[in-house]
Amino acid sequence: MKLTLKIWRQQGPHDNGRLVSYETDEVSPDMSFLEMLDGVNQRLILKGEEPVAFEHDCREGICGSCSLVINGVPHGPERGMAACQLYMRRFSAGDVITIEPWRARAFPIIKDLVVDRSALDRLMQAGGYISINTGGAVDGNVLLIGKEQAETAMDAASCIGCGACVAACKNASATLFVAAKVSHLGTLPQGKPERARRVAAMMEAMDREGFGACGNQYECEAVCPKRISTRFIAMLNREYLRAGFVASGSPAEPDSSQAGPD
């Protein structure tokens, strides 16, 4: 199968990038998309050229490393899967495939198709956790958590942190990412004590990192490899509104919202 690839090449964060065309004819339908790129790279190396930098690791759709926008859609034409799970039989001979990196101010390009997604880590550091020390946890069955509640939490928690939601969003917003974490922890009783501070801190961090605001277009859900629902965004918004009232503090202890470990 013969294909034309138009791949974004960019030396470094401050260089100008451009789309470069590559013809490749050693493509079999049984190859994965990333194996096809591996092949292109092997030939580039033998020609003494620098291979195309792209991120990949587990190649089974769970690590969240892959970050390719294929023909204008993050993770490519298949729904509910990451680019590493895309196979070449999805394409036909003669196709022109454009491959670009995630594009967002919060995700500066490192090289070619590799972007810096540490902004997502900083969102998590702002509040995506339960402040609990190791040791001394009560027995796991002391907290009874209904099956449906646990399933909802699991739906939200299945986010792989790839950032496709940001890449797909017209506003490069990380709202679905934040919503998934806030909903996961906010649904479980363990996460409730910190829910008000968590949602406020994470939303503030999102603005600080240069992400846009949610445009309610649901493009994020449509490209999410784990099909995380935008209903979690509504849940996030509710959590935020609730927090807005709760964080004003209770009358008896004016500072109660700021008590506890930081």
Partner: peptide
Amino acid sequence: MRRSNQFQTSLS
């Protein structure tokens, strides 16, 4: 977790 009761975010 950062102390926060400003609520001056894009979501507001």
